[in-house]
Amino acid sequence: MTPKELVKSFYDSDLANSSDAIDRCFHKDCILNWHSSKGFNALNFNGLKSVFEEISKAYQTVRFDISHLLQDDNSVTIRYTSYATTFENPDEEIALAHFISIWEVKDGKIIKGHQLSQLADTSISSLKSFS
């Protein structure tokens, strides 16, 4: 599997209901440097697992709408918007956040990431910029 295919397989996973995606795609020594609208956070493998465990408790479904997926050697850049449905309102999907992430792949697993995110802007002009 190429680095690009690995990253895409992670984002194609049912992350709200699948606990194996982190184990399958991420190296045990991985680190994610994440700059969000709430500040900086560095997450290791266990930190990533915790984030997705919390997501699975909060949302019935999570989906990623990918606008860009680019590979350069062992680095993959992805730009996407995350969407979710809640248990209380499973018929309404809401945009959560916009992301740009750069992932480094080593030995068939994601070993390092750099990520920027902000809360989703659902204006028409913003959402059109992702097409």
Rank of each mutant, 00 (worst) to 15 (best):
83 Y>V: 08
122 T>L: 06
56 S>T: 10
108 G>D: 10
102 I>L: 08
63 R>V: 15
125 S>Q: 14
35 H>E: 06
34 W>A: 11
108 G>W: 02
4 K>A: 03
107 D>S: 01
128 K>S: 07
59 Y>V: 08
94 I>Q: 15
79 R>Q: 15
19 S>R: 13
62 V>P: 01
41 N>A: 06
89 N>F: 04
54 E>F: 14
28 K>G: 13
19 S>F: 04
105 V>I: 02
130 F>Y: 04
18 S>P: 15
69 L>Q: 14
12 D>H: 01
109 K>E: 00
17 N>L: 02
66 I>A: 06
105 V>Y: 00
39 G>A: 06
14 D>H: 00
69 L>S: 08
125 S>Y: 02
2 T>D: 06
98 H>F: 14
57 K>F: 15
51 V>K: 05
57 K>D: 12
15 L>H: 15
41 N>V: 02
116 L>V: 08
14 D>M: 12
46 N>G: 04
118 Q>H: 03
104 E>V: 11
24 R>Q: 00
126 S>N: 01
81 T>P: 04
3 P>Y: 00
4 K>P: 01
66 I>N: 12
37 S>D: 11
123 S>N: 15
29 D>E: 10
114 H>G: 12
76 V>H: 11
105 V>R: 00
121 D>C: 08
83 Y>H: 15
92 E>M: 11
48 L>P: 02
114 H>E: 13
111 I>V: 09
126 S>V: 05
47 G>R: 05
73 D>F: 10
33 N>K: 09
6 L>M: 02
115 Q>N: 07
60 Q>D: 14
105 V>P: 05
85 T>S: 02
78 I>T: 04
70 L>C: 10
43 L>G: 09
42 A>K: 05
103 W>E: 01
126 S>W: 14
67 S>E: 11
51 V>W: 02
68 H>S: 13
28 K>W: 14
42 A>L: 13
99 F>V: 11
18 S>C: 04
21 A>D: 06
113 G>K: 10
14 D>C: 08
73 D>G: 12
115 Q>W: 07
128 K>I: 13
96 L>H: 15
105 V>L: 00
17 N>Y: 08
73 D>H: 14
78 I>Y: 11
42 A>T: 13
108 G>M: 10
110 I>D: 00
71 Q>S: 07
10 F>A: 14
45 F>M: 11
54 E>T: 04
91 D>N: 10
46 N>L: 09
118 Q>F: 08
62 V>E: 10
3 P>H: 00
78 I>H: 13
124 I>M: 15
68 H>P: 13
130 F>T: 07
100 I>P: 01
129 S>Q: 00
70 L>G: 08
15 L>E: 09
107 D>A: 02
77 T>I: 15
100 I>M: 02
121 D>L: 04
86 T>K: 07
47 G>F: 14
70 L>S: 12
29 D>C: 11
33 N>E: 11
52 F>C: 04
122 T>E: 08
90 P>T: 11
20 D>V: 13
25 C>A: 12
9 S>M: 12
127 L>A: 03
23 D>T: 02
47 G>P: 01
